[in-house]
């Protein structure tokens, strides 16, 4: 395979080899966790203590600093997982499967967090914890999808088969992602449409927006760090029979 031996491709394979990734992921995970953790703390104190009160919702709006970052990160997580699934199915990179596997619990937690914080926020603003509007329902579907991925990966004992089946499920469920994203624009929902816009005008005062953006960036860092940490464990687990893992853990010579 002449094609597969081009320098870029060779570099890519070396970079994604589990031992290499295990090593380079460590400082990244640590750095992202520290930066993200500190930034999240700053953003939450800023948002909870110093940001102004909302003229309509009073103090209850402050849960936005949990709700929006977790919801946004859960969608970004699903998008990354779809990309990983394509990489896994098309180029059969082992590392993509390992990362994908460990994205599942993190994505599941983020989705649940978004739903729960939304429900708590819904009570004072809408008068109910839950309504069956398009945004909430499609988000609930995403939660079900994450549970389904987890279930199928656990149920299939053969590693490779479990990875591929999960990747296919991720891609099939991908249709739900644009539905979540644009549900607030396509239908008349109780949930408000997006406030922060990359193109066009953002309808939020700076004193609220700044801590919100900071909390989002911080959440992304923490989430990335969590995935890196978990991927390192996954690598150790899957490669536990190999020599380098035995060396790494200092197990050789004892058994």
């Amino acid at each position: 395979m002449a094609f597969s031996m081009t320098p870029v491709w060779r570099w890519f394979h070396r970079w994604t080899s589990p031992p290499n990734f295990y090593r380079i992921a460590r400082p990244w995970a640590l750095g992202l966790m520290l930066v993200g953790g500190v930034a999240l703390l700053v953003a939450w104190i800023w948002g909870l203590v110093f940001a102004p009160e909302d003229y309509l919702q009073g103090n209850s709006y402050r849960i936005i600093f949990v709700h929006v970052p977790s919801a946004s990160a859960s969608l970004a997580m699903y998008l990354s997982m779809a990309i990983l699934a394509v990489i896994s199915l098309v180029w059969k990179i082992k590392l993509a499967d390992m990362v994908l596997r460990q994205c599942i619990p993190v994505g599941l937690t983020l989705t649940a967090l978004a739903l729960i914080s939304g429900a708590i926020w819904g009570r004072p603003t809408w008068g109910v914890y839950w309504i069956w509007d398009a945004r909430l329902t499609s988000m609930l579907v995403q939660l079900f999808l994450f549970i389904g991925m987890w279930a199928i990966h656990t149920a299939i004992e053969q590693q490779k088969l479990a990875d591929k089946a999960t990747a296919i499920l991720v891609l099939v469920g991908f249709v739900n992602l644009p539905i979540i994203k644009w549900s607030v624009d396509w239908w008349n929902t109780m949930h408000q449409p997006a406030t922060i816009r990359i193109t066009g005008e953002t309808t939020m005062v700076w004193e609220m927006l700044a801590p919100l953006l900071l909390s989002m960036a911080a959440t992304y860092c923490v989430v990335a760090a969590l995935v890196l940490y978990r991927t390192r464990w996954e690598i150790l687990y899957r490669e536990r029979k190999t020599r380098w893992v035995q060396d790494e853990l200092g197990l050789r010579g004892q058994a």
């Binding site: 579907v141 999808l145 549970i147 279930a151 299939i156 296919i168 499920l169 469920g173 739900n176």
Partner: peptide
């Protein structure tokens, strides 16, 4: 059919199949 194909190799698949397919049926 997608769900059934995914679990075709498993011995006990009934409940798992439901978990996978129900969200897509919504």
């Amino acid at each position: 059919a997608i769900g059934a194909a995914l679990v075709a190799g498993l011995r006990r698949s009934g409940l798992l199949l439901s978990l996978l397919v129900i969200p897509l049926y919504i």
